Simulated scan of single mutants.
Amino acid sequence: MPSSFAMEAKSVDDTVRKRLRDLRTQQGLTLQDVAARASIDVSTLSRLESGKRRLALDHLPRLASALSVSTDELLREPESEDPRVRGSSHTRHGVTYWPLTRQGPTGGRHTFKVRVSTKRNTPPAELPVHEGQEWMYVLSGQLRLVLGERDFIIKPGEAVEFSTWTPHWFGTVDGPVEAIMIFDVHGERLHLHSD
């Protein structure tokens, strides 16, 4: 039968492992980002998060610093937080954005419901480019997507994925468009895992 000390150590290990993963994903950081900041090998960090390696005391201050939190915060039980995403809509260049995810302090992946106004129907002379990866799923209306020299009409139920390094623009065809948009500032590709 395990001693109470061993059970307590496992509980601390589990808490830190969960906090480490939660804080990293909330901040939109990859394993590589945190490992580099903490001067820890990526494989070590991965094993720490998955429970395949025990935490050492010297890991704690480096990991806390890499995540911009105190060691105490890394060790504490996470508060049960309100699951509702709070944020007001904002409109820019004929697109209204409603946040569907919390905005992490260092950026990362952001999800929005968007409504594209019928006024947004003509692409600019020069298509914008910027860092990132974008996904869109059209809920209603017909979305016009211009990617470089190519022009697409995306219908309800269809999804698109593209690098925002490609000159791009989206707008309406014959009425307003509603869609779900996922934007990853770091340009990481979306990976869906089935368990």
Rank of each mutant, 00 (worst) to 15 (best):
S89I: 02
R47A: 11
E178K: 04
A159E: 07
F152C: 08
K18C: 02
S11C: 06
S89T: 13
H193K: 15
G132D: 02
D33I: 09
D33G: 03
K119E: 15
I180L: 15
L57P: 01
R62Q: 12
Q26F: 10
A9W: 07
L23D: 06
S50T: 09
A66I: 05
R53N: 09
S89L: 03
E158L: 04
A159L: 12
H93G: 14
D13T: 14
R120W: 04
E8S: 14
F152A: 05
D151R: 08
S68V: 07
S11I: 11
H191M: 09
E49T: 05
L57A: 14
K10T: 13
S163Q: 04
V85F: 01
E131W: 00
E126F: 04
S11H: 10
V146D: 13
Q103A: 07
I154A: 00
L100S: 09
A125Y: 06
V12N: 14
E126N: 09
E79R: 15
R86G: 10
S43D: 11
D58M: 05
R21D: 13
D22G: 12
R76I: 07
L74M: 06
R150S: 11
T118W: 01
T96F: 01
G87K: 06
V160I: 06
E81C: 04
L57T: 06
L45W: 02
R17T: 02
T122Q: 11
F5E: 14
S39L: 12
P167H: 03
S43W: 06
L55M: 02
W135R: 09
R109E: 12
V12S: 12
T111R: 05
G94I: 04
A64T: 04
M181T: 08
T106L: 07
A66F: 04
H191T: 15
R24M: 07
A35K: 02
T96S: 14
Q27G: 10
T172E: 04
T166H: 04
P105Y: 11
D41P: 09
V129F: 03
L45P: 11
E73S: 08
